[in-house]
Simulated scan of single mutants.
Amino acid sequence: MKNILFLTFLLVSLAIGGCASMGEGSVDDKRQILLDMEREVLSELYRTKPDTRAQLGTAPGYAVFSNANINLLFFAAGTGYGLVNDKVTGKTTYMNMAEGGVGLGFGVKDYRIVMVFHSADAINDFVTNGWTFGGNADASAKASGKGGSVEGEAYYGDVTVYTFTENGLALQAMVKGTKFWVDKELN
């Protein structure tokens, strides 16, 4: 059993290591990749949930992340990147993320997260501390814009979180923690 757990952990680590990489390029190139991702994700969010346009329009800030996640039996891991737009200060903070979880699941998915901050303190706390804990359950079968997934939205104090799957095939029920941190190279 220990060998199976070790092999599972090793496969998850190797798979995640390359899933959400920004790749090569200059700092400006990497920032542009994130800005393009932000534009595409917000367009998709507004298309699928039109009421969010007004919500983001009046919010003091928001974050957009791209994440790749893999689930193998009892463990899940993921990594990604994104940015936080503080509309009060006008500052954009580029960030990274990593997540790990336990539960039941199997599959791989590429998904997006949009966080709407409803206070300046929520933005500051997120950029400074960046931890989240929670659980999620979802089912996804989507590729090249075809297929479907079941996701929802969640509320954590002064933050509303929207998630949606870009591509992937996964069925999971997990308890997980996610760490977000400032990308020193891009800021």
Rank of each mutant, 00 (worst) to 15 (best):
G82D: 01
Y156R: 05
E40F: 09
T163H: 02
M115V: 00
H118G: 09
R112Q: 09
A77C: 06
M95Q: 04
K49W: 15
I4F: 13
I16A: 13
A98W: 03
N136T: 09
A68W: 08
T92W: 01
L56H: 02
S66R: 11
Y81A: 10
Y94W: 05
G61N: 02
F65A: 08
A77Y: 02
G130S: 01
E151M: 08
G90C: 07
D110V: 01
E185V: 04
F75K: 09
V150D: 03
K30G: 03
L56N: 08
F117H: 05
G107Y: 13
A15W: 12
L34Y: 04
L34K: 12
A154S: 15
Y111V: 01
T58E: 08
A20K: 08
L5I: 11
S43N: 15
F117R: 07
A143N: 02
A76L: 09
S149T: 11
G80Q: 06
D125P: 01
K91A: 09
I33P: 06
L7H: 02
Q32K: 14
Y46L: 01
D51T: 10
G157W: 14
I113V: 06
T89I: 08
D29M: 10
A170Y: 11
Y155I: 11
N124L: 02
S149C: 05
T178K: 11
A154M: 09
V27K: 14
A54M: 12
T92V: 11
G57D: 12
T89G: 01
D28C: 01
M1R: 13
G17S: 15
M115S: 08
N71G: 05
N167P: 09
S144I: 07
L104G: 05
F9Y: 06
A154D: 14
A76W: 00
A76V: 02
S21P: 11
D29H: 09
T89M: 02
D28L: 14
C19F: 12
I113K: 00
A137G: 14
I33C: 07
G103Y: 03
S26N: 10
H118I: 00
N167A: 07
K49R: 15
G23L: 12
G101W: 13
T160Q: 13
L72E: 09
F6H: 10
M37E: 10
S26M: 04
M22L: 15
G147W: 11
A143P: 01
A122E: 04
A120H: 07
T52K: 13
D51L: 12
I33E: 13
L56W: 04
K184A: 14
F117S: 04
G23Y: 11
G78Y: 11
G135S: 15
M1A: 14
V64P: 04
L34I: 15
F126Y: 07
V159M: 13
S119M: 11
T128K: 14
V116L: 06
T163E: 03
F65S: 08
V150Y: 09
S13R: 01
D125A: 06
L14V: 07
D28N: 13
G23D: 08
G168S: 06
G147V: 06
G168C: 02
E166N: 10
R39D: 13
Q172T: 03
T93S: 06
Q55A: 05
L169V: 15
V27S: 07
